[in-house]
Write a protein that binds this DNA or RNA. Sequence first.
DNA 1: ATAATATTTTAGCCAAATCTAAAAAAATAT
DNA 2: ATATTTTTTTAGATTTGGCTAAAATATTAT
Lengths: 221, 221
Amino acid sequence: MLNYSQSEENYIKAIYHLQADGETVTTNALAQELLTRPASVTDMMKKLKTKKLLNYQPYQGFRLNNEGKKVALGIIRRHRLWEYFLSEKLKFGWDEVHEIAEELEHVSSKKLVDKLDEYLGFPKFDPHGDPIPDMNGKIENYQQVSLVDLPLNTLAEVCHVSNQSTEMLDLLKHKNISIGTRLEIKQKFHFDSSVEIKIRQQHLVTISEQLAKNIFVRYGA
Amino acid sequence: MLNYSQSEENYIKAIYHLQADGETVTTNALAQELLTRPASVTDMMKKLKTKKLLNYQPYQGFRLNNEGKKVALGIIRRHRLWEYFLSEKLKFGWDEVHEIAEELEHVSSKKLVDKLDEYLGFPKFDPHGDPIPDMNGKIENYQQVSLVDLPLNTLAEVCHVSNQSTEMLDLLKHKNISIGTRLEIKQKFHFDSSVEIKIRQQHLVTISEQLAKNIFVRYGA
DNA sequence: ATAATATTTTAGCCAAATCTAAAAAAATAT
DNA sequence: ATATTTTTTTAGATTTGGCTAAAATATTAT
Ligand SMILES: [Mn+2]
Ligand SMILES: [Mn+2]
Ligand SMILES: [Mn+2]
Ligand SMILES: [Mn+2]
């Protein structure tokens, strides 16, 4: 696997995100994403085309090919592993990790990244709930649903909370739930739609429908 | 504190090391150190002079001024903290950490570095036994003493042996001790004044008073 | 003191990554 | 179907950090 410049890597990653929905990526969209000028994008697209990372014909937009996607997944892997490290080990807040990971992701040692992965215990999701590609660039399939829609006895991981009020965060803290918490539903009570959950290595707790609606989890497909 | 490019930082750090003995640094010496050309060095020296990091008159060599030294110590701090992290947490070998730290040192977030320092437990020495500057750029003074006088549980680095006989060197080799070995004393036995030492990443070994007397170590004041 | 050698600087060129302004092409509106 | 507007590309410039070759300066040897 060749090495790419910091700038090339930032372009590759941005294209990957923009083309995720199957669309062709446009010059303007990419320029906006990277806070740069359309002319600069065109220049870089020519370069990445000669490096055989994407398909591009003038005026036709562009998409990463398989090689380009593989490179992108490597960068995303590094980015998310560092975010996890910053959040989990160094106790940075969710909002602070992205900017620093934006730099760390460009340190390219393969051995570093794989050892970091191991040290962190092969985490599956970054602090924002986004999946971390494994050594082979594979991202786990997952379903993302509100906790009220999680099937009984299905291990899932909290990946998102749709309400960030102090009150909600207080309650979550009290119930010992945060992003990354692994849990399963043991029982649903139809009277008030409350659910009884078992958090990994903790006791059973009951949470209200109100709260469950705002907790999002992912589980294996 | 301003931000400097990766290239500028590599020059600053190299000058710092070369001028350590009070000498004026020459164009050729720096070019050799950085595997670059003298002409490139001259260009960069002009730039660093306008940035007020060093004193430089054509043909006269150069030295970092106080501001330049402060910047250099920041880079060295990052470099050595990352080396410690790679060695201690990710279990890289001593010989592998430098190259990776050469990249990581350029990630400039002050908060990252200070949190990393805290996470690592404010280590005083990197895996090569070199001292790690603290948040204020301060490097601990060294004490150099015979191993028999090293306080318990104090990490130190072997810097000298006062007997160079084949017999002594044989014994040192057998005990896996050489210049640069980092160790601490775990126990002193008063019966025969032997000491039990823990060498970094190795098992405990016991050495005689006779041997300990002839081993000199340095440690943070 | 002068000549020979070594070091350092200057001059001029190059590649990467950016920019602005103008031209070209595509998309949209009349 | 044209005209207008938007998007994209091209042309040409700039900055950073590097290079080679030649000139300038300093050092060393005779
Ligand atoms: Mn980045
Ligand atoms: Mn993220
Ligand atoms: Mn470096
Ligand atoms: Mn070191």
